[in-house]
């Protein structure tokens, strides 16, 4: 990508740019020709984008101002859905529950992934060990959720069997309101940790060795090098990883759907599940769309704040 964009830069090859200046009309012609070819190449992505992202998004925003039961036509009701959401205790509950999930999931996942990435970078150079870290990620989300659902089961789960052998009381991992969200956050941390570590590991490899050499000549060691060299130079990658994982984390759905389905009481009624419940179970697609639009706005704001304040689009390497 970088080589392509850098080619027309006149500063790089003066001779090249002088030639093109002479053939100005031809260049314009070539530009139009490029456009056609370019469109051809862009088309698959563009059609996909318009068909599967742009149109549904606009349609979703439109539906959020309607009352719509899928069977029948949408009725325009203005901002009534949004007014109701503001007063809906289940929405605020969902927001709280989702935030709790995201905080537990992201903090643990990022810290553990960073640790794993450092180990991969410095210690575990074997491909097998590095590959093994990725294994949980290769499992489908639903399978991972169901597997842990059984292993953590109150009556027949192996984990509770072990807890009992240790002389401790059994834990209702999915059944108690206190445990349900942390349990699911941990399951998804376990599943995504290796993948996140891989992304961070790629970032670590991009840091040139001479920076470390310079630091060690200056007498920097261990933690100090990590804190002053590795972390600042890793920042753009970390920000990207955070943006992607936070967005993903906010949209937790499948784990909840195959295990607790919003319960016990409302302890795991996360936003995505609540949207699904209102739209698909209760046939209230207008209200569900309004909830989805709010989730979209939340994610946009969160991503914006992360990019803005962590300067994710700038690197300290340049």
């Amino acid at each position: 990508m970088t080589t392509l964009t850098k080619q027309p830069d006149p500063g790089l090859s003066a001779g090249e740019s002088r030639k093109t200046r002479k053939r100005k009309p031809a260049a314009t012609f070539r530009g139009v020709g490029d456009l056609k070819v370019a469109l051809l190449f862009i088309a698959p992505a563009l059609i996909g984008f318009v068909l599967f992202y742009l149109v549904p998004t606009i349609r979703g925003i439109y539906l959020s101002f309607t009352e719509y039961s899928i069977l029948g036509d949408p009725d325009w009701i203005g901002t009534k859905n949004y007014e109701q959401i503001a007063k809906d205790p289940l929405f605020w509950n969902a927001l709280g529950v989702t935030t709790e999930y995201v905080v537990i999931n992201i903090v643990l996942q990022t810290v553990l992934a960073l640790g794993l990435a450092l180990l991969m970078h410095r210690v575990a150079k074997s491909t097998i060990v590095r590959g093994a870290l990725l294994l949980p990620y290769l499992m489908a989300n639903v399978i991972a959720a169901l597997l842990w659902f059984w292993m953590l089961d109150y009556q027949i789960g192996i984990v509770n069997q072990i807890i009992e052998w240790l002389g401790l009381p059994r834990v209702a991992f999915f059944g108690s309101e206190e445990w349900a969200i942390p349990t699911q956050a941990l399951i998804n941390t376990w599943r995504h940790m290796g993948y996140t570590a891989l992304l961070i590991f790629a970032g670590l490899q991009a840091i040139p060795n001479n920076v470390y050499e310079a630091a060690s000549i200056d007498g920097s060691k261990g933690f100090s090098t990590f804190w002053r060299i590795t972390l600042p130079l890793l920042r753009p990658v970390l920000v990207l990883v955070l943006v992607v994982t936070v967005i993903g984390s906010f949209q937790v759905f499948d784990t909840v759907a195959v295990t607790t389905q919003g319960g016990p009481v409302n302890a795991t009624r996360v936003l995505q599940y609540y949207i699904y419940q209102r739209a698909f179970a209760e046939q209230d697609f207008g209200y569900g769309s309004a909830l989805a639009v709010i989730l979209f706005l939340i994610l946009a704001i969160v991503a914006f704040i992360q990019m803005k304040f962590l300067r994710g689009n700038q690197s300290d390497l340049d």
């Binding site: 992202y53 549904p56 993903g248 697609f285 989730l295």
Partner: peptide, 21 residues
């Protein structure tokens, strides 16, 4: 993969709308 959930929901909704006619 979590991201796909919303996409799938949106796609399903659009398909439903397109075909409801």
């Amino acid at each position: 993969m979590k991201k796909k959930a919303l996409g799938a929901v949106a796609a399903a909704a659009v398909a439903a709308i397109a075909l409801s006619a």
